[in-house]
């Protein structure tokens, strides 16, 4: 059920990708996400898929897990696909039945959009699968560190993010539990029209929110008890240094960008 959702989770392992500097992974993720929108040709997509396949292979993350990340947003992908295929007009009609017309251009565009979404999900889940919340936060804090001079609360933002990531599994588990409890009381979540489904979500959302606030309160207290007093004079458990493997990762990314740009 819902607690099997894997987005945002970290799966520790001893692999090339895990050992990359989190700053490297963050920067590469950012670059890739931008460049996904610049791919417009089949060779471009193929090279991107190859790049991701390589990443997955060198991360010791099982392919099943990657599929799982896609499955958790299949609905969004599906809708995107449907909207594009039915509503985009073109010149060459591939299929016609009553008022439904599917054009070649629509089909291509639909595949492209769905493909992009899948790629985006894989890119971002590879980052979170192989990088702990702490590493991501540290990387953000270091990369955006210069903004501190402009009084931008970099440390606080980074901490907020890492705590959000930390609580995703806890809250998912809780959602699951509440759903089961409400089901046992006769609630149903997957029947009826849209309105009644949304109404059906309330008995889940309200207890979930109440508990989330309680957790936030507890956590704030626990952090204070452990001497948390903002980002001043804090040390970091891990110090980050770029290594040779980061150079390799950047080089491969550069190669990928060049391919995308040429294949345009």
């Amino acid at each position: 059920m819902i607690k099997n959702m894997t987005i945002g989770q970290y799966f520790p392992a001893d692999s090339f990708v895990h050992k990359l500097d989190p700053r490297t992974k963050l920067i590469i993720t950012f670059i890739l996400i931008i460049f996904v929108f610049l791919i417009h040709s089949l060779p471009g997509y193929i090279s991107m898929v190859a790049f991701l396949a390589l990443t997955i292979a060198f991360s010791k993350i099982s392919f099943r897990l990657v599929l799982k990340s896609i499955r958790s947003i299949w609905f969004v992908i599906f809708i995107t696909f449907i909207l594009n295929i039915f509503f985009l007009k073109g010149e060459e009609i591939l299929f016609e039945w009553q008022f439904i017309r599917i054009y070649r251009e629509g089909l291509i565009k639909a595949c492209e959009m769905a493909g992009r979404l899948v790629i985006l999900v894989i890119i971002s889940s590879m980052l979170t699968y192989t990088t702990s919340a702490k590493e991501i936060t540290d990387a953000i804090e270091i990369l955006f560190g210069p903004l501190k001079k402009l009084r931008f609360p970099v440390h606080e933002m980074a901490l907020m993010m890492s705590i959000a990531l930390r609580f995703i599994p806890t809250l998912l588990e809780e959602t699951d539990r509440i759903m089961k409890a409400q089901t046992a009381r006769g609630a149903s979540f997957d029947t009826g029209g849209l309105i009644s489904r949304i109404k059906g979500m309330l008995p889940i959302l309200i207890p979930l929110f109440i508990s989330a606030f309680k957790r936030a309160e507890d956590l704030a207290l626990a952090m204070e008890a452990r001497c948390y007093h903002g980002g001043d004079n804090r040390t970091r458990l891990v110090e980050y240094h770029y290594k040779f493997r980061d150079l390799i990762a950047f080089a491969l990314t550069a190669l990928e960008i060049v391919i995308i740009l040429i294949a345009k």
Partner: peptide
């Protein structure tokens, strides 16, 4: 101080 709820006092994912 160690609190009651084990889920609400751990801050990190490792």
């Amino acid at each position: 101080m160690v609190f009651q709820n084990p889920d609400n006092q751990l801050v990190a994912t490792i």
